[in-house]
Amino acid sequence: MRHLLGFIFIVLIFSCNGDRSERNPFLQEIGFRFDLNLNLPEYSPLTNTGNAIYVDNVGVGTRGAFVINIGFNQFRVFEASCPNHAPNSCSTTELSGQTAICSCEDYEYSLFTGQLLNKPEGEGRFYDMLEYRATISGNVVTISN
Rank of each mutant, 00 (worst) to 15 (best):
V60E: 01
G138K: 11
L111S: 03
P120L: 04
N88H: 12
L4P: 02
Y54P: 10
E29Y: 13
F78H: 00
S44K: 15
E105M: 12
F32M: 02
R2I: 05
A86G: 14
T135V: 10
N57E: 14
C16Y: 06
K119S: 07
P41W: 15
F9D: 00
L117A: 07
E108V: 11
F26P: 02
R23I: 14
T93V: 03
I8W: 02
V67N: 00
A86Y: 15
R2W: 03
S81D: 05
D19E: 10
A86F: 13
C82P: 05
H85N: 11
T49G: 08
N17D: 08
N51Q: 15
V11N: 00
S103M: 13
S44E: 15
V55C: 09
D19V: 11
G59R: 03
N88M: 12
G6V: 04
G114D: 00
C104W: 12
G114Q: 02
R33E: 15
F14I: 10
Y54D: 10
N51P: 03
Y109P: 01
T135Y: 07
T113Q: 09
N69A: 09
G138H: 12
I8E: 00
S110Q: 08
N84M: 05
T142D: 06
V60N: 01
P120R: 07
F75G: 07
Y43N: 14
E42A: 15
N57P: 06
S96P: 04
S44I: 11
P83A: 05
F75E: 08
S91P: 03
Q98G: 12
L40C: 14
E79C: 09
Q115E: 12
V58S: 13
R33W: 05
N118R: 04
V58Y: 08
L27M: 04
I53C: 11
C82R: 02
Y107F: 13
N69T: 04
Y132V: 04
A52D: 00
R33G: 05
Q98F: 14
H85Y: 09
S15F: 06
V140Q: 06
F26K: 00
T47L: 15
Y107V: 05
I70P: 00
F26M: 03
R63I: 04
V58M: 11
M129E: 01
G61F: 01
T92F: 05
E22P: 10
G31F: 09
S96V: 10
T99M: 08
T113D: 09
T92E: 08
F112R: 06
D106A: 13
S137P: 04
F72A: 11
I136L: 11
G18K: 12
T49K: 11
C102G: 02
P83M: 07
S137K: 13
E105R: 13
N51H: 09
E121A: 15
S137A: 15
N57R: 07
G71M: 03
A100T: 02
S144V: 05
S103E: 10
F126L: 10
T99V: 12
P87A: 08
E123G: 15
F14T: 02
I136G: 02
E108P: 03
I53R: 05
R133A: 09
T99L: 05
T135C: 08
N139M: 12
T92D: 05
S144W: 06
E79W: 06
F14W: 04
T92P: 03
T62F: 06
T135I: 08
L12S: 06
S144D: 07
T135W: 05
A52I: 01
T142E: 12
D106M: 11
V67R: 01
K119L: 11
